[in-house]
Computed example of a mutant assay.
Amino acid sequence: MPILEVQDLSVSFVQYTKGLRQKKVQAITSLDITMHEGEILAVVGSSGSGKSLLAHAILGILPSNARVSGTINYSGDELTPVRQASLRGREIALVPQSVNYLDPLMSVGAQVRTSVHNDNPVEVQKKIFERYHLDPDLDKKYPFQLSGGMARRTLVSMAMVSGAKLIIADEPTPGLDSIVIKEALSNFRELADHGCAVMMITHDLGSALQIADKIAIFYAGTTVEVAPVKDFFGRGEKLRHPYTKALWRALPQNEFVPIPGSQPLPNTLPSGCLFEPRCETATRECSLKQPKIQEIRGGMVRCIHAT
C-alpha cells in the first residue's frame, strides 16, 4: 500500500480584481503522485509549477482562499483537515523552503527540542546540532541571530528528529555549503533506507538524481512524467515526455540546449496539453484537451504520443 497517494489534485485560488469582481486562478490541475515507504521521490520543476503548493496541500496549510479538489490518501485513508492537523509535525514533517517558518520568539534549540516526540529532547538536539555542524551555543540564540545557512540547517534538523514517516523537503539545500549539502542528501537517503518516505522538492535535477528512486516532473501545475532514476541517461531515449527530454538535454553536462518559450501563467493555461505551445512534436490533437496520465514502460506520463 502506498504511504501517500495523490489523485487528480486541483488547487485554485479565489481572488478579487478591480470593482470587487471575483476570479479564479488555477494553480494545480489534475496532479498525480504515489509514494511508498523507503522511497525518495524527487519533485522537479521550474518556479510556478506547483511543487510547494503540493506540499502545502498535503499538510493542510493552504491559505483560506484556496479551493481544493481530488483526493490525498495517507496510509490508505483520506487526509481530512482533522487528520492533517493531527499528523502534521509528527508523522508528516516539512522542511520548508523559507527560513521565515522558524518562530522568531523561540530559541532555535527549543524549536528543535519541541520536534522530538520519542527520545530525550536535550540529548537528541545536541546530537543533531553536532551532526549538522551547528555550534552548541546556538541553541540559546534566536533565528535573527543566525546566518541563512544556519537557519536552514536548523529547519532540516527539526524534520530529522521528528520521527516522521513522511518527510517533505522543500528546496532543502540552498544556502548550504557543498559539504553540508552532501551530508543532508546522505541523511535523506539514510532515512529512506530505514523505511521513511521522503519527498524532495527541488529545481536541481542533478542533486535529485544522486539520491532519488523516482523523479516526478512538474509543469504548469501538473505531473507530466514520473520516471525511475535509471531512465535519465544518454540523450534521454528512455524518457517519455517531450518536456522531460528537453529538461534533460538543457543541463550543462548534457547538450545545454535551451527550451524555447516559457511556462504559461496560471491565468493563461492552454486548453489542451499544457506543454503543447512549446513542444516540437505537438500535433493538432494535442491542443484539444489535456491528456490523462498513463503508465508506460514502468513510468507515468501525460502525453498522447508517448511510447
Rank of each mutant, 00 (worst) to 15 (best):
V14T: 15
V14Q: 14
V14A: 12
Y16T: 11
Y16P: 00
K18V: 12
K18A: 13
K18Q: 14
R21N: 13
Q22V: 11
Q22I: 07
Q22A: 06
K23G: 03
K24G: 00
V25D: 00
Q26H: 14
A27M: 04
A27R: 02
T29R: 14
S30L: 06
L31T: 02
L31I: 04
I33H: 01
M35R: 08
E37H: 13
G38K: 05
I40P: 09
I40K: 08
L41N: 04
V44D: 00
V44W: 01
V44M: 09
G45C: 04
S49D: 08
G50L: 02
S52I: 03
S52Y: 10
S52D: 01
L53Y: 03
L54G: 03
L54K: 02
A55T: 01
A55Q: 03
A55P: 01
H56C: 03
H56Q: 13
H56N: 12
A57F: 09
L59I: 04
L59C: 14
L59H: 06
G60Y: 06
I61P: 02
L62Q: 06
L62A: 05
P63Y: 14
S64C: 07
N65E: 08
A66P: 00
A66R: 11
A66T: 08
R67K: 14
R67W: 00
R67L: 08
V68R: 07
S69G: 05
S69R: 13
G70P: 07
G70H: 07
T71W: 02
I72C: 09
I72K: 06
N73V: 03
Y74Q: 02
Y74T: 01
Y74S: 04
G76E: 04
G76H: 12
G76Q: 04
L79Q: 06
T80E: 01
A85W: 02
A85V: 05
A85K: 15
L87W: 11
L87V: 05
R88V: 07
R90K: 15
R90N: 12
R90V: 11
R90F: 06
R90P: 01
A93F: 10
A93L: 05
A93Q: 09
A93E: 12
Q97N: 00
Q97F: 05
S98F: 11
S98M: 05
V99A: 13
N100C: 01
Y101I: 00
Y101G: 01
Y101S: 11
L102A: 02
L102I: 06
D103C: 08
L105K: 11
S107D: 04
G109E: 03
Q111W: 09
V112S: 01
V112G: 01
T114I: 14
H117N: 09
N120M: 08
E123V: 07
E123S: 13
Q125F: 03
F129D: 06
F129W: 07
F129T: 01
R131C: 05
H133M: 11
D135N: 14
D135E: 15
P136K: 11
D137K: 14
L138P: 09
L138F: 13
D139P: 00
D139L: 13
K140N: 13
K140F: 12
K140G: 12
Y142H: 15
